[in-house]
Amino acid sequence: MAMETFATRGYHHASLAEIAERAGLTQAGVLHHFRTKAGLLTGVLELRDASDIEELGDGRPHGLALLRHLVDTARRNAEREGIVRLYAVLSAESVTAGHPAQEYFRGRYAGLREIVATALREAVAAGALAPGLPVAHVANGVIAVMDGLQVQWLLAPAAVEMAETTERVIEALIGVPLPPVPDRAG
């Protein structure tokens, strides 16, 4: 309930009263579990991250497999409009002074940049990508494309194919095709 309310109204326009009503609780009941509206927001964002981490299973993919995973994430996101909307709204709102999710998003972006940059360095070390690849710039570009596509998709879902576009842009940035999707049947 809180995720949907924050996603549709943003942090500043979402009320604890509405969230409590949708959850079948009183405001006091919500505050008993989260203490503050900012605490509830943090809990919602952590739940979103836990869902993404759970999908990774035993560990993060390495090298080009991580880039393939990002394409798969874009494909899954096309089936999770609420989560995509939550992320898009709150990440944009977080750039305003005093927003309670600002540090969360700073940390999230720093972590994403490092994960993508590490995968790119792994691919270079394995000989799958050319030495001299501007790893930090490519990592920033991949993240920017994914986030930008999410906003475009939310505004015009029929006009934007997030996974296909993500794959094509990643391949253009790294200069090689991504490995094929692993066969999950066996």
Rank of each mutant, 00 (worst) to 15 (best):
R184M: 11
L120A: 01
L129T: 04
H13F: 10
A23M: 12
L47T: 13
E46D: 14
R85F: 07
H33P: 00
A97G: 11
E46L: 15
V138T: 12
I174K: 06
R106C: 07
L155P: 02
A65N: 06
S91R: 15
E122K: 05
P61I: 08
S15D: 06
L40I: 07
H99K: 09
M146Q: 14
Q152H: 07
G186T: 12
V142Y: 04
V89N: 00
G24I: 12
A144R: 02
L155I: 03
D72A: 14
R60A: 12
V124A: 08
A144V: 01
M3S: 12
V151T: 05
H33A: 13
T8P: 00
Q152K: 11
T73Y: 09
H137P: 00
Y104Q: 09
V160R: 09
A130H: 08
E122Q: 15
L16Y: 09
H99D: 07
Y104T: 10
A130R: 14
R121K: 10
H33W: 08
P177L: 09
R121Q: 11
L90Y: 00
N140R: 13
A101F: 13
V116P: 01
V71Q: 01
L129C: 04
A119D: 02
G186Q: 08
R48A: 13
R106K: 14
R76D: 13
E171C: 09
V44E: 01
K37T: 03
I143Y: 01
A2L: 06
T26K: 06
K37S: 06
V176Q: 10
T96H: 14
Q152P: 00
A50H: 10
A7P: 00
A159G: 08
A130G: 05
G175Q: 04
R68Q: 07
G175D: 02
R9D: 08
D72N: 09
F6M: 02
G29Y: 10
R76C: 07
P61F: 10
G127I: 07
M3H: 06
V181L: 14
Y11D: 02
L86K: 01
A14G: 07
W153Y: 09
L66C: 04
A78V: 06
R168Q: 13
I174W: 06
H69R: 13
E54N: 04
R184E: 14
L31W: 07
V142G: 01
G175V: 07
F34R: 04
V89D: 01
L47N: 08
A128E: 14
R106W: 10
V151C: 00
L86R: 03
D52N: 12
I170K: 01
L45H: 06
A78L: 04
A126T: 05
M3A: 14
H137K: 08
